[in-house]
Amino acid sequence: MKNREDIKNYILSIEQQFPVDSWKVNHLAIWPILRIKLFFYLINVVEAGNKVQIKKDKKLSILQKLKAELKKIDSVVHYFFWLRKLPSKKYLFVGADAHRVNFRSKRFNRYFDILIDKY
């Protein structure tokens, strides 16, 4: 199997060869569950196989690995310094960007901005 089309054809051939409609456990049809699990498993095998080959070609030197780890540590340190600089507040409002609307050329959170003014 090399692609999703091959996987689909393989699963269809299983359905033609075996009585998958009669596969039940405690009166529960298990083939739909197995079919989905099998499909995604085979996709991961086929597509991960291509990614593994790419990763083998890109081997990092020890210096590059050390530099990447130091960058991670630096990010964590900066995060904690940033966190300490934040002033303590009684209320914290967190919302998704999808809750914002454009109103008079400004971004406005339709749920929280009213509450922020109040509190």
Rank of each mutant, 00 (worst) to 15 (best):
Lys2Gly: 03
Lys2Trp: 04
Lys2Asp: 01
Asn3Leu: 15
Asp6Gln: 06
Asp6Lys: 06
Asp6Ala: 08
Lys8Trp: 09
Lys8Phe: 14
Ile11Thr: 01
Ile11Tyr: 01
Leu12Gln: 10
Leu12Cys: 13
Leu12Gly: 12
Ser13Lys: 14
Ile14Met: 13
Gln16Pro: 11
Gln17Gly: 02
Phe18Cys: 09
Val20Ile: 14
Val20His: 02
Ser22Trp: 09
Trp23Glu: 05
Val25Lys: 06
Val25Ala: 04
His27Gly: 10
His27Tyr: 03
Leu28Phe: 11
Leu28Gln: 15
Ala29Leu: 12
Ala29Cys: 11
Ile30Tyr: 00
Pro32Leu: 10
Ile33Cys: 11
Ile33Trp: 15
Ile36Ala: 02
Lys37His: 14
Leu38Cys: 10
Leu38Arg: 09
Phe39Asn: 03
Phe40Arg: 06
Tyr41His: 14
Ile43Gln: 04
Ile43Asp: 00
Asn44Tyr: 06
Val45Ala: 11
Glu47Tyr: 10
Ala48Asp: 12
Gly49Leu: 00
Gly49Glu: 06
Gly49Val: 00
Asn50Pro: 04
Lys51His: 03
Val52Leu: 07
Val52Lys: 04
Ile54Tyr: 00
Lys55Val: 08
Lys56Pro: 04
Asp57Cys: 08
Lys59Tyr: 12
Lys59Thr: 15
Leu60Trp: 12
Ile62Tyr: 00
Ile62Phe: 03
Ile62Met: 01
Gln64Thr: 02
Gln64Phe: 00
Lys65Gly: 07
Leu66Tyr: 03
Leu66Asn: 05
Leu66Phe: 06
Lys67Trp: 07
Lys67His: 06
Lys67Leu: 12
Ala68Gly: 10
Glu69Lys: 15
Glu69Thr: 15
Leu70Ser: 10
Leu70Asn: 08
Leu70Tyr: 11
Lys71Asn: 08
Lys72Arg: 15
Lys72Gln: 15
Ile73Leu: 15
Asp74Phe: 08
Asp74Gln: 13
Ser75Asp: 13
His78Arg: 02
Tyr79Ala: 07
Leu83Asp: 13
Arg84Trp: 06
Leu86Asn: 02
Leu86Gln: 03
Ser88Phe: 10
Tyr91Val: 02
Tyr91Ala: 04
Leu92His: 08
Leu92Ser: 09
Leu92Ala: 09
Phe93Ala: 07
Phe93Gln: 01
His99Phe: 04
His99Trp: 05
Arg100Cys: 09
Phe103Asn: 02
Phe103Lys: 01
Phe103Ile: 02
Phe103Cys: 02
Ser105Gln: 14
Lys106Trp: 06
Lys106Ile: 07
Phe108Gly: 02
Phe108Glu: 05
Asn109Phe: 13
Arg110Tyr: 10
Tyr111Arg: 06
Asp113Glu: 07
Leu115Asn: 09
Asp117Arg: 13
Asp117Trp: 10
